Simulated scan of single mutants.
Amino acid sequence: MNHFNLLPRFKAQYDMNDQEFSISGIVRPQSIDELAPSIALLRDSIDRVRGVLYLNIKRLSQMNNTAFHAFSRVIIDACRARPDLKFVIVTSSVVGWTTRKFGYLNAIEPNITVQEYDSQFYPGQSFLEEGGFIPILRTQTKLTWRHERTILPRHGMKTGVVMADVCCGIGDFAVLVQREFEPSRIVALDHSKSSLAYARNMAAEFDIKGIEYTHGDASEMLLEDDQFDFVTCRHSLQIFNRPELILKELYRICKPGGRVYITNEKISQCLGEPRGDTIQWTYNELAKLFAYFTMDIEAGPKNRRLLIEAGFEDIRAESFMVTNLDGDPKDFANVVQSWEDVFAGDMSQRRGDNSKFVKRFRRGFQDHIFAALHPKGYAGWPVWVASGQKPL
């Protein structure tokens, strides 16, 4: 693999194994001469390639017209000189202008196509980014925070850390951490524009300062290497079809010696009494429903292995059970009701489940609510926690 560090915050490289030329950072040269090393690398890459050359611009945050025309000229000339060669330009929806701008090249040369990398990467995103899902996120965090506020220090959280909350959702966890532990800086990143808009509105309404809400793709973050002491990613790896890509990024942005903290569930182990049998059936089926949409909501016990395979050391792992006894039982019931609304509603409908199945599916959620509110009942939702240290 060849590397050139060109201008500040700008990197171009070629990966021979993947036949991929990538550009990342900010590319704003005053003259084409400043791009000479990267243009030479691109031409050399083209000479080496057979079939398809991938141009990866997922981390390209800025590019002026001088740079755009210089790179485009090389690509177009190559298409005309070598009709056998195809270019696939890989963009990200997080940096929306790249898809639009590089999309013009396809109109000029049919051998140039543009693929938006993350358009299919988040299979469950449409379910979990709906505005109606906001109440469930807030209530879930309220319930888990009673446990996590005592767990976090065991995993490295302390006053003054520089922290990133990746897949921050509506930002409520970042707010709670800020108030309890007072990090020196928090960057809260999410792929959902609607969730971030909600987080920013809440921050403005309650005069919350010091949290930098950032739109980004967790698998290709526009954040620099080795800059955070503590990185969190809660209830999120389980909804990505390739969690190893997220873990690679969490590792990258974490400082050597810093820690990455993750939480996931094993939904089939939700429990309740009375009516335990119907509750168990529904959560077993819920795990299958998520798997149908390529999400692994059984990932909790896999946390330790995932962190080890991502290169972390000093792994710390534990679990806790959120129950109807953690404060007001109605909070637990409200979470389960939200689960029923989304999972036995839109998700089940999109899978094509018949009415008989949906009726039985809903019954388990309703029985879980019954157990939560019953004066002698018990209802539980297990969460697995793990953290790992990035080697020094």
Rank of each mutant, 00 (worst) to 15 (best):
I170Y: 00
F332D: 07
F133Q: 03
D77G: 00
S338A: 14
N65P: 04
E313D: 07
L307M: 03
M1R: 11
A174F: 01
D226W: 08
V385E: 02
K330W: 09
H191F: 12
K248I: 06
K209R: 15
G257K: 05
M347R: 08
F370V: 12
F361C: 08
H374R: 00
Q178A: 13
R234S: 03
F121Y: 10
F68I: 11
S72Q: 04
L35K: 04
R73Y: 10
R28L: 15
R59I: 02
W145I: 09
Y213T: 06
D229N: 12
Q115C: 13
D229W: 00
S72L: 00
T139V: 14
D326T: 06
A379V: 06
R80L: 11
D226R: 11
L373R: 03
T141P: 05
H374D: 15
G272D: 06
T278I: 02
G272C: 05
R350M: 11
W145L: 07
T278V: 13
F240I: 05
Y283C: 00
I308K: 15
F240L: 15
E180D: 13
Q140W: 14
D328Q: 05
R179Q: 10
V322E: 01
G51S: 06
S38Y: 01
Q349W: 08
Y117W: 14
R138Q: 12
T141E: 15
G131I: 07
Q62I: 07
D225G: 03
V342K: 10
E20H: 04
D277S: 14
A310R: 07
I108S: 08
Q227I: 12
A287F: 02
H155S: 04
I32C: 09
I39K: 08
Y198I: 02
S338P: 07
Q389E: 13
S195M: 14
Q125K: 13
D77T: 10
Q140Y: 15
M63T: 11
G132Q: 07
L152S: 07
S219Y: 00
L325Y: 11
S31R: 13
V74M: 04
K248H: 15
E340I: 08
R179K: 15
D326I: 06
Q62R: 10
G156Q: 02
F102K: 01
I239L: 11
R154S: 14
G300C: 06
Y292G: 01
M221T: 12
I239M: 05
K158T: 14
F293R: 04
R82I: 05
S338G: 15
S126K: 10
L6W: 02
I279F: 09
G257T: 04
G160C: 10
N324V: 09
E244I: 14
G216V: 01
Y292M: 08
G210E: 14
S219E: 07
E265V: 15
